[in-house]
Design a protein around this nucleic acid. Structure first.
Length: 395
DNA sequence: CGTATTTGACCAGCGC
DNA sequence: GCGCTGGTCAAATACG
């Protein structure tokens, strides 16, 4: 059994290598491919006939009639699941996007463009980022620059929300997400009984999750925080393993899981769990960036000053695919389905509002999902693949 | 040598 | 109760 897993893993690694090579060869057509991906996801009819994962732990994808509730991928809301760079950067990534009429649209001269496609009956925020094709070593180097000199904490905003367990027991019960257990958990390391107790507690008060879809060949994206990998597991029905990371900051119990889509190896799903109990570790590059006037409108490729890797390389440019039907969001969707930036490119307010909106609006339907097979309905995934194939055929 | 990663083992939860 | 799977631990290993 284990040998088989190992063989599979080896096979997966080979696949990944091949796919990375493919990535380079298909890079030029990415923009169009990406566009098709989201055209596919924009149709509500594509939400029909979804199959669920055979993963018994995460196959609770909700099907309400023909409508899949993507919001259910979140166990619970989380206060600012994104690191500083997403939520508190005064020069948010939205500023990098085309902003005509505050609509996100495809960019004809760049592989970076964004779509945000509101789906019916979906409260979920699926953030897509369009990442460059870089070597992991580069990311690692950027991460190593991180120092503790941060100003504000992403945790400063509290979000009213509900957890999965709460949702299971008490529908629509809202709880305030805090992280009082994180310190305790650190202290409990030691004996196995303690570990058991810890795990039980974790199960009872499981941290919130926030899934983030990214297009990249880099698995462990540099989001500005420092992460230590503590595990890796083969994922059922997926050729790609899932990696487990924990924030390296003492006392911070935030975790993240990283896995690739089994159907689209270009898509990486990062699932954040918990809240950082510390300020965002700002790099020197960050400081330089924050004071740089070029950030607002300049092309990312024109950056010349030292900056965090993920910003230099447009790591945090989202597809901005916000699946959200909250009242506030509804009016921000144009008739053609194009997402309208509700905050006029002010990410600072935008993201928090979007997140809290989504979280508080999904309290009755939160289940234990959050991993890739749950967040990307198979129909969408298959559409993605089909579109990619079609694109290849056109060449 | 300190830190990060790898990886086999272990545990808990769930379905049957 | 058993088997499967996800999640975590921690010793071994790799790396800078």
């Amino acid at each position: 059994m284990e040998k088989k897993i190992e063989e599979d893993h080896h096979h997966h690694q080979q696949q990944q290598q091949q796919q990375k090579e493919q990535l380079n060869s298909t890079k030029n057509t990415e923009t169009k491919i990406q566009q098709q991906i989201f055209q596919a996801t924009s149709s509500s009819s594509h939400m029909e006939n979804l199959d669920t994962s055979s993963d018994h732990h995460h196959n609770q994808l909700e099907l309400a009639g023909n409508n899949i509730n993507l919001s259910s991928i979140f166990d619970a809301p989380v206060s600012s699941p994104f690191p500083y760079s997403y939520l508190e950067d005064p020069n948010p990534f939205l500023d990098f996007l085309p902003q005509d009429n505050h609509q996100f649209s495809s960019s004809s001269n760049s592989s970076s463009f964004s779509y945000a496609l509101p789906l019916q009956n979906n409260n979920t925020n699926l953030f897509f980022t369009d990442l460059p094709l870089l070597q992991p070593s580069t990311t690692k180097a950027a991460s190593s620059e991180v120092v503790n000199a941060a100003p504000t904490s992403p945790n400063s905003t509290s979000v009213s929300s509900s957890s999965k367990e709460a949702a299971n027991d008490i529908t629509d019960k809202e709880v305030i997400l805090k992280d009082p257990e994180e310190g305790e958990q650190q202290e409990q390391k030691g004996t196995k009984p303690q570990l058991k107790a810890k795990k039980k507690n974790q199960k009872k008060a499981r941290e919130a999750r926030f899934a983030f879809l990214t297009r990249s060949d880099i698995d462990n994206l540099d989001d500005g925080y420092r992460w230590r990998k503590y595990g890796q597991k083969a994922v059922k029905n997926s050729p790609y393993p899932r990696s487990y990371y924990r924030c390296t900051t003492v006392g911070c119990g935030v975790k993240k899981r990283v896995e690739r889509s089994s159907d689209d190896p270009y898509i990486v799903m990062t699932t954040y769990e918990g809240q950082h109990s510390h300020p965002f570790p700002m790099t020197r590059g960050h400081i330089a960036m924050l004071t740089s006037p070029i950030l607002n409108k300049a092309s990312p490729t024109s950056f010349a000053i030292p900056q965090p890797h993920y910003l230099l390389t447009r790591h945090h440019q989202p597809y901005s695919s916000m699946y959200n039907n909250s009242p506030n969001m509804t009016n921000q969707t144009s008739s053609d389905g194009t997402f309208v930036n509700p905050r006029s490119s002010s990410l600072h307010g935008f993201s928090y509002d979007v997140l809290s909106q989504a979280y508080t609006s999904t309290t009755s339907a939160i289940r234990d999902h959050g991993l890739l097979q749950d967040i990307l309905p198979s129909k969408i995934r298959s559409d993605t693949i089909n579109n990619r194939i079609n694109e290849d055929d056109k060449k």
